[in-house]
Simulated scan of single mutants.
Amino acid sequence: MTVITHVQRKSRLAEMVDRPGGVSVGVALAQAKANLDGLKDQALAIISENIGALLAPPTPDIPEALRLDSAYAASSQVIDAASPFALDDLCTAAKGLCDLLDAAPRQGGFDWRIATVHAQAMKLLLSLTPDAPGTAEARIAIMANLSEVLKRKLPMSPQSPA
């Protein structure tokens, strides 16, 4: 009887992973933070541009479905640009607007004042400096009011209790 054996070769990747070295977690986190800090101005510009798009006066000749999709894309880009920098209130406001736009009827009838209110709230949240007196209270008030808009304007889901 013949037995065939194969010599197991270790891949270069496996050898590299097994070798000691690399950077510590603390150094890696510091490098990541430094890299992110370099992108913050660019992210704030993207956020401001998309808030401006949400605040732009509506064009009546554009179909409602396309306007809803454009507003949804602008709100999503606010989330994408704000989330790496822990701008949680801004992300929450933009997510609420996305939820409202997603639930809006495609054939018309969406109250565009809701999008304007959310965009103005996002602009205000962006302008509030974290260390200024009264900022925390202002953020809480803005978020509570946006939450109230969501409760009143977002259709109830079938799973939620009445």
Rank of each mutant, 00 (worst) to 15 (best):
V27F: 06
I142P: 07
V149K: 12
S48K: 15
A71P: 00
P105G: 03
A43W: 10
I51Y: 05
A82L: 05
L87N: 12
R113E: 12
G21T: 02
V23I: 14
T92R: 15
M122V: 11
R139E: 03
T135D: 02
R12C: 03
A30F: 02
A65H: 07
A82V: 01
A115P: 03
A81K: 13
A30Y: 01
E49S: 15
D80I: 08
V25G: 02
P130I: 09
E15T: 09
V117M: 12
K153D: 09
P20K: 12
P155F: 00
T135H: 02
D41G: 15
S24N: 05
D88Q: 10
V17F: 05
A82G: 04
V117G: 08
T2A: 12
H6L: 13
G26H: 06
L36P: 03
P60R: 14
L97D: 01
P158Y: 01
V149E: 07
K10T: 15
Y72V: 00
D41K: 15
I46F: 07
A132F: 02
P133F: 00
G96E: 08
A14T: 07
I142T: 12
P20C: 04
F110T: 03
A32S: 11
G26C: 01
L100Q: 03
M1V: 08
L54F: 05
L87G: 06
E137G: 07
S76E: 13
L101W: 03
A14W: 01
L100V: 08
S24K: 08
Q42P: 05
I46L: 14
A141F: 00
I47A: 06
K40E: 13
L125C: 06
P133G: 02
A119R: 14
I46C: 12
P57F: 06
L36S: 11
V149D: 05
T2C: 03
S147A: 14
P155Q: 02
R152G: 12
Q107C: 01
K10R: 14
P60A: 15
Q107T: 13
T59P: 01
T59V: 13
G108F: 02
N35I: 14
P84G: 05
A73S: 12
A81M: 08
A82H: 05
I62F: 03
S75K: 11
L90F: 06
L29Q: 10
L39Q: 15
T135M: 03
L125Y: 03
P130K: 14
L36N: 10
G21F: 00
K40S: 10
D18H: 09
A94E: 06
L44R: 15
I140Y: 04
P105K: 12
Q8W: 04
